[in-house]
Write a protein that binds this DNA or RNA. Structure first.
Lengths: 195, 195
DNA sequence: AAAACTGTACCGGCTGGACGGTATAGTTCC
DNA sequence: GGAACTATACCGTCCAGCCGGTACAGTTTT
């Protein structure tokens, strides 16, 4: 009974975060520390060794999810894609791909649940601001950008309560959004100056 | 100590739901029944007379919000608008108008928080399915519909953590979305058969 | 018409259990 | 030897739900 067979502290931390994500997603944030610990195959004491407080755990979890999403998007940027909107396209791809993979769905559900915790809300808000600034520099017209990003966000969130809320396959929606980021005829038709 | 001066039970129920919405929005679902009761100017016992259980209260609240949103959309349908997409346009208007008015924002925050409660998730899911079916019969091409509705949902949700996540004013986004529901040139450019 | 009764709408104190956190003693790996 | 745990016991707090009452509005009885 000690350091669980050859697992590094860093690994344990990650296992704990993973278990927290799963347990909180399934049973809500009100789930017990004991539950999380059990889910990770770690004792409650062990959990509290790594995260001194439940708030600590929650904060770390949210930060980790935010970071993971950002890293995913950065990694999803197509190196051959040099036109305006390349980051936005990566954002769309990750959002809708993850939507299928139940990945950002967890993030969404959790962040939403946790938005009530002021400190967590602050984290998310600062992250959102950062995204807004980054995406604004991506070369798309503001209307197009807002439309595409809102739709990507909305599609991710739909999974939260709808499952398959709209009957259109995510893949088709993704194609439509990507086309919106590329087709300048569409941009023109959406420009505010238009009728 | 009796029936609070001239207030009907129905009124009390509504006051309680209103207080629950406010308190849960501000302090999360983990807020106390006593807090909700205090917010409504009712004793905890009185609250529990109307809603036998905290889950009961939550369920009733979510259902009420869902119903309210649906009623708002129905009421927002423009009688002079007879073209395809008229319901979708009402949906967009309510979503983004409420987004300004912090109205659907509450709904979103709450439903999101409550999505972890299976029974509530079921309510929301069934509601989402109903919306999908209703909107599908609105006469818009599937891709356009999915894009517009996703964007409207996403914009509502953005308020959850971002506040003003994208710098575009909601009004401009609304105009873009409404144009998308009307302009057949845009439909053509977004049609799946296209490049 | 007044007394007796009944049901509804509430009040507010209480409690039992759950949960976060602490403490401590022991164990195993680096 | 110290970091990284396990296991267990315990404490204090907080809160949902229960319960015994109370006040009023009707309804029925006399």
């Amino acid at each position: 009974m000690a350091r669980t067979a050859g697992r590094s502290p860093e690994e344990t931390r990650r296992v704990l975060l993973g278990a927290a994500a799963e347990v909180f997603r399934d049973r809500g944030v009100s789930a017990t520390l004991a539950d999380v610990a059990r889910g990770a195959g770690v004792s409650k004491g062990g959990l509290l060794y790594h995260f001194a407080t439940k708030d600590d755990l929650v904060r770390a979890l949210v930060q980790d999810m935010l970071d993971t999403f950002r890293a995913d998007v950065t990694a999803a940027v197509d190196p051959d894609d040099t036109g305006p909107g390349r980051l936005t396209r990566a954002y769309v791809r990750v959002s809708l791909r993850a939507h299928d993979a139940d990945e950002v769905r967890e993030t969404a559900a959790l962040i939403a649940q946790l938005a009530a915790i002021p400190e967590v809300a602050a984290l998310a808000k600062s992250d959102a601001r950062h995204w807004a600034a980054t995406l604004a520099a991506d070369g798309l017209p503001p209307t197009v950008l807002a439309l595409v990003v809102s739709a990507a966000d909305g599609a991710s969130f739909a999974a939260l309560w709808g499952g398959a809320s709209h009957t259109l396959p995510a893949h088709d929606l993704e194609r439509g959004l990507l086309r919106l980021t590329r087709d300048r005829d569409l941009w023109a038709l959406l420009a505010p100056s238009q009728g």
